[in-house]
Amino acid sequence: MAETTNGDARGASEQGAGEATNPQQFTIQKIYLKDSSVETPGAPEVFTQSWKPEARVELNTRRNTVGEGLYEVVLTVTVTATVEERTAYLCEVHQAGLFTVAGFESNATDQLLGAYCPGVLFPYAREAVSDLTGKAGFPPMTLSPVNFDALYARQRQREAASAESADDQETDNPG
């Protein structure tokens, strides 16, 4: 009987030590299409013209705290295709996901939510854009891969430069 108790105590202490050494948790809870739309203001005339569009792609991300360590990240992809300066179509997809992020330092959490999670969502958004544009009667729009780590780093640099410039203005113009 004493062996079982010692074994259970040792197992519980080893489990506690394992949790203490690895408290970080990242889990994809759910990936879902939050919103999507496609507009074809140039139809039907656009279908009678030669198809040589210019496409503009915009990417935006936002995050919301849903609960303790639970975040919703939404990747918005907007594609505007024009032919001869007329809008052929406007396609917008809001691809979302619920992610558990716990036990990370704030910088690491910010990087996960700002770069890694949008990277996870992008293939789903890419597929939705392709499907919607194809169903709208156009050749399916296939988006190029995106380096979200580079976009995140660029955004951080802009924020740092903006904060530095604001600090300089406060120093130059004391109130």
Results as ranks from 00 to 15, higher is better:
Met1Val: 11
Met1Lys: 06
Thr4Lys: 10
Asn6Phe: 10
Asn6Glu: 14
Gly7Phe: 09
Asp8Met: 13
Gly11Gln: 08
Gln15Ile: 07
Glu19His: 03
Glu19Asp: 01
Thr21Asn: 12
Asn22Val: 06
Thr27Val: 14
Gln29Ala: 01
Gln29Ser: 02
Lys30Ala: 09
Tyr32Gly: 03
Tyr32Pro: 04
Leu33Asp: 00
Asp35Pro: 04
Val38Thr: 08
Val38Cys: 13
Val38Asp: 01
Glu39Met: 08
Glu39Ile: 04
Glu39His: 14
Glu39Asp: 12
Glu39Asn: 13
Pro41Ser: 01
Gly42Lys: 00
Ala43Trp: 06
Glu45Val: 12
Thr48Phe: 14
Thr48Ile: 11
Gln49Thr: 11
Gln49Leu: 15
Gln49Pro: 05
Ser50Phe: 10
Pro53Tyr: 09
Glu54Trp: 00
Glu54Lys: 05
Arg56Pro: 00
Arg56Asn: 15
Val57Phe: 11
Asn60Gly: 15
Thr61Gly: 05
Arg62His: 11
Arg63Gln: 15
Asn64Leu: 13
Thr65His: 07
Thr65Phe: 07
Val66Leu: 15
Val66Pro: 01
Gly67Cys: 02
Gly67Leu: 01
Gly69Phe: 13
Glu72Asp: 04
Glu72Gln: 13
Glu72Pro: 06
Val73Asp: 00
Val77Cys: 04
Val79Glu: 04
Thr80Pro: 03
Val83Ala: 09
Val83Phe: 02
Glu84Pro: 03
Glu85Asp: 14
Ala88Glu: 08
Tyr89Asn: 07
Tyr89Arg: 02
Cys91Asn: 12
Cys91Gln: 09
Glu92Asp: 01
Glu92Pro: 03
Val93His: 09
Val93Thr: 07
His94Gln: 12
His94Tyr: 05
His94Ser: 05
Ala96Glu: 07
Gly97Ala: 07
Leu98Phe: 15
Leu98Ala: 07
Leu98Gln: 05
Phe99Met: 06
Thr100Trp: 02
Thr100Ser: 12
Thr100Gly: 08
Val101Gln: 02
Ala102Ile: 08
Phe104Trp: 04
Ser106Pro: 07
Ser106Cys: 00
Ala108Phe: 08
Ala108Gln: 15
Gln111Tyr: 15
Gln111Arg: 15
Gly114Ala: 11
Tyr116Gly: 04
Cys117Ala: 14
Cys117Lys: 05
Pro118Val: 09
Gly119Ala: 12
Pro123Arg: 06
Arg126Ser: 13
Glu127Ala: 14
Ser130Phe: 05
Ser130Thr: 05
Asp131Pro: 00
Thr133Met: 05
Gly134Ser: 09
Gly134Lys: 09
Gly134His: 12
Ala136Tyr: 06
Phe138Leu: 01
Phe138Val: 01
Met141Gln: 11
Thr142Trp: 02
Leu143Cys: 06
Leu143Lys: 02
Val146Asn: 03
Asn147Glu: 12
Asn147Trp: 10
Ala150Thr: 05
Ala150Met: 12
Ala150Asn: 00
Leu151Pro: 05
Arg156Glu: 08
Arg156Val: 08
Glu159Asp: 14
Glu159Ser: 07
Ala161Pro: 00
Ser162Ala: 15
Ala163Met: 06
Glu164Leu: 11
Asp168Arg: 14
Gln169Pro: 00
Glu170Cys: 01
Asn173Glu: 14
Gly175Tyr: 10
